[in-house]
Design a binder for these strands. Sequence first.
DNA 1: CTGAAAGCGCTTACAG
DNA 2: CTGAAAGCGCTTACAG
Lengths: 332, 332
Amino acid sequence: MRQNATLKKIAERLSLSISTVSRALKDHPDISAETKKKVTELADLLEYDPNPYAVNLRTHSSKEFAVVVPSLSNFFYHSFIRSIEEEAQTLGYSVIIYRSANDPKIEQNILKSCRHKRVSGIFIAITTETMDMEPFLKLDVHGIPVIFFDKVPQYESCNKICVGDDHAASLAAEEILKRGTENVLGIFGHLNMSITKSRLEKFISVLSQANDHINLNVVHASSADEAEQLTLSLIPNYKKKNFVIFCMSDEILSGTMKAVQRKGLSAPKDLGIIAISDGMIPKLFYPEITYAETSGYNLGKLAYDRMMKCIAGSSFAQTIIDESKLVTGGSM
Amino acid sequence: MRQNATLKKIAERLSLSISTVSRALKDHPDISAETKKKVTELADLLEYDPNPYAVNLRTHSSKEFAVVVPSLSNFFYHSFIRSIEEEAQTLGYSVIIYRSANDPKIEQNILKSCRHKRVSGIFIAITTETMDMEPFLKLDVHGIPVIFFDKVPQYESCNKICVGDDHAASLAAEEILKRGTENVLGIFGHLNMSITKSRLEKFISVLSQANDHINLNVVHASSADEAEQLTLSLIPNYKKKNFVIFCMSDEILSGTMKAVQRKGLSAPKDLGIIAISDGMIPKLFYPEITYAETSGYNLGKLAYDRMMKCIAGSSFAQTIIDESKLVTGGSM
DNA sequence: CTGAAAGCGCTTACAG
DNA sequence: CTGAAAGCGCTTACAG
């Protein structure tokens, strides 16, 4: 098993001290041009790269970001991770992925391990049961910046990057008003999700403020299958009527679309369809589904930006909302 | 900025030596039960966790796996990563993600960095241009196991875990024969991809060997859009005829499905549709699309298994093919 | 049963 | 311009 090159080996071969080699490699002003040249040449030849563990042990700084999410089988989080990874790579950081499985215990262990590894920063979407802010405060004490994204705590003074739920819901509601359809079936996720609450409230308020005659039916589904079943059973109520289905999320949209296809209906002729989505699923259908975009990719860019500012020393906390935008397909 | 607990601090507080504390924490047989108790109690209180960098520096062993892929915007690789992460977590390993952007230069840098970090093992899908096996051999010399998956090199003596392209293609072809349809439109990816070649060859050979009368039209598309355009322009050729479209991949399937919807056709009445897929996209349609499954998730389990055997000392190289299975939707 | 010592590979204040 | 030395936090052979 061959060994990697070390400062010591280079120093021995060149009859220099380890300190000098180290400085030469860092282009330290003290070192003569000649020595630098000799050193860098041999270093290149031996493919020297500093041992990151030794560097960390000495300097207390790693070049690693951690991303912690409840689940990896989620298109939104994947886009987020991809987004972070793209940026991190340009600065030589690596990205470590942790999955909390939505379990606060596991989450705590992950945070502890991040602390001991002295990661450069943490991006985290917390579990639905995360109550205790103490582990996060502890990270702060250790100087490890934490950027919360998507699923964020109530706690005020921390950095949060969120999807503009209100905005997305109002964009969708306005589009429905524009279409002039008065029968609306709104399919939302389970009420224990915070996004359900904010999307629902805004959706209702925009619709009802603009038009008294809106006939809105709100139902809740906690899976694609449930959304499919609900849609199937409710579609007959709208027979011969002009109506719109609003789907709060990609998961619901995918269930609803199956029901719509199954009933042989097609948008925008038989009904209107509009969703809040990351954008992949709406584009699989013809016509493409009109949606208010909530992009994990964008969120990643915003979060990364905030992270770099924290690392650069910005200490005040900030909540950033990623405003949504309407992407028009042909389904309305 | 508060400090983490260290062996030294625990030792001082307890008036013991660092060595004794270290041994007590490892449940070393030399240490008395009483001492162990005192030490572990204080360690718990202080939330002691060994500094991973110091451990690595000392023992040359990290607890990290690297996964290297050409792209992260790919459902298949995501499933693979998720699969690896699930297993790794149970043994306390972390998973670091690297993206080569299909650039052999970047890939080489990643490999170098993995070597210097002394990762415990590497899972890699190589770029289409990776020619030089030397960096991989070097990892081997350093005792870092490499498991190639999906995109693997020609080179013989290495560990490869592949999708059963032949098998998937023949499952699809057999299903077409079973349906008894003689007009087949086969849409394949670009010929510079190795999977295109193997899938195409097998597909043709199964169909032609079984039935002389098959009227097979093979076309190539390198994006979903291209697949959509091709399908749109070719569907008229099959007017009034009974026909089947075979889609080599998810990307092609998504383009083709848009064209099919656009033409107002529906499976299985107007045509048959069958694909090779990871399984997410086929399930978005009604009826669900019949497909031969190539699962990133399964591949991950197989790769992980192989990795653990390598770490345990198995030195011989092996190529494992993940056989495909037919998942029947209603599209045939 | 416990401790002193060396060393993993690096950085950096101090000395010359 | 260069070097000797200390120390980051740990493990382990050696000694007692």
